[in-house]
């Protein structure tokens, strides 16, 4: 091997290492770029309506009124309602798969079901919600004597719950699996029943991880777009009950962004995008930190 080829090798070595660092830098720049772009683009709106963006409910681009409170309420209402509905189901599945049935054909069926639910694209949830779930809700609303829209906050929350269950359940299952077997055995050997072991040993031990799972699934519910857009009814009025029509921050973006004209209008929408990005970023960072901590403790 001649000296020239050695030099060549050293050059390639350096080139490769800079290529690796460069790709890392690209990701860094990409994410920072997303934040900065949103910030800069929403500046005109932030300046124009100071900080009263989320303090009033009139969203009327034609007359130049940009009050986003109804979207904020719609987002929080659907997301938390969805989380509430999903908890018993995702927790049950997490316990069943993490503790009771770690293998065997029933576990396989359940796991496959979770995977299937997780694999269905959001637009199809929306489609199904619009054509199958909404008519049922309409019947329910007729029986209850409220305005029978079919679509609305409740329908959106139900669909959202269905969408986040697989996510929270599989995170929960992994966390429950991390509970040391010795702890469970110690509890059982002291004469505790399985239920008591789950309630007093496993769940307390896995508590922080399971809550992180719920937090992350809340983040998903907050940012989910297509399914919600299709079944929430797209009304800019402040929702008054769970049967009201509404809009979430994400669904407003989906509905109005491509037709928005006028710089303040677009900028106001980007401000919603900025808020969505910041909130989901905080949620996912906290959630992942908790889960990482739990797995490191093992």
């Amino acid at each position: 091997m001649s000296l020239k080829t050695i030099k060549n090798t050293q050059q390639k070595e350096r080139l490769f290492q800079s290529l690796l660092s460069a790709s890392g830098v690209i990701i860094l720049v990409l994410v920072i770029g997303v934040f900065i772009t949103l910030l800069i683009q929403s500046m005109p709106a932030i300046i124009a309506h100071k900080f009263d963006f989320f303090s009033h409910t009139t969203w009327d681009p034609v007359s130049g009124q940009y009050g986003g409170l109804s979207f904020l309420v719609g987002t929080l209402l659907t997301a938390f309602l969805a989380l509430l509905i999903s908890i018993p189901f995702s927790l049950s599945i997490a316990i069943v798969l993490g503790e009771y049935l770690t293998e065997g054909w029933i576990a396989l069926i359940l796991k496959t079901a979770i995977d299937l639910l997780a694999g269905i694209p959001s637009v199809i949830y929306g489609f199904w919600g619009l054509f199958v779930l909404a008519p049922w809700i309409r019947n329910l609303e007729i029986k209850l004597g409220v305005l029978p829209y079919g679509v609305g906050i409740l329908t959106a929350s139900l669909i959202l719950a269905l969408m986040i269950i697989p996510y929270a359940a599989s995170l929960g299952r992994e966390v429950i699996r991390l509970v040391p077997a010795e702890l469970k055995e110690a509890s059982l050997s002291l004469g505790a029943t399985r239920y008591e072991t789950v309630r007093k040993i496993i769940l307390p031990y896995a508590k922080s991880g399971i809550s992180a799972g719920f937090l992350l699934s809340l983040g998903r519910a907050l940012s989910e777009t297509m399914a919600v857009t299709m079944v929430i009814g797209n009304s800019n009025l402040l929702p008054t009950s769970i049967f009201s029509l509404g809009n979430t921050m994400a669904s407003v973006l989906a509905n109005e962004f491509s037709e928005a004209n006028g710089s303040i209008y677009i900028s106001s929408l980007l401000e919603i995008g900025l808020l969505l990005f910041v909130v989901t970023t905080i949620i996912s960072l906290i959630g992942r930190r908790i889960i990482k901590k739990m797995s490191v403790h093992q």
């Binding site: 890392g24 990701i27 860094l28 990409l30 994410v31 940012s223 949620i283």
Partner: peptide, 18 residues
């Protein structure tokens, strides 16, 4: 970079669209 990957994974798809 790792933190950025986590952020990117949690970023709403609609935000990536805009």
């Amino acid at each position: 970079v790792r933190t950025c990957v986590d952020i990117l994974q949690g970023t709403p798809s609609i935000v990536i669209g805009i």
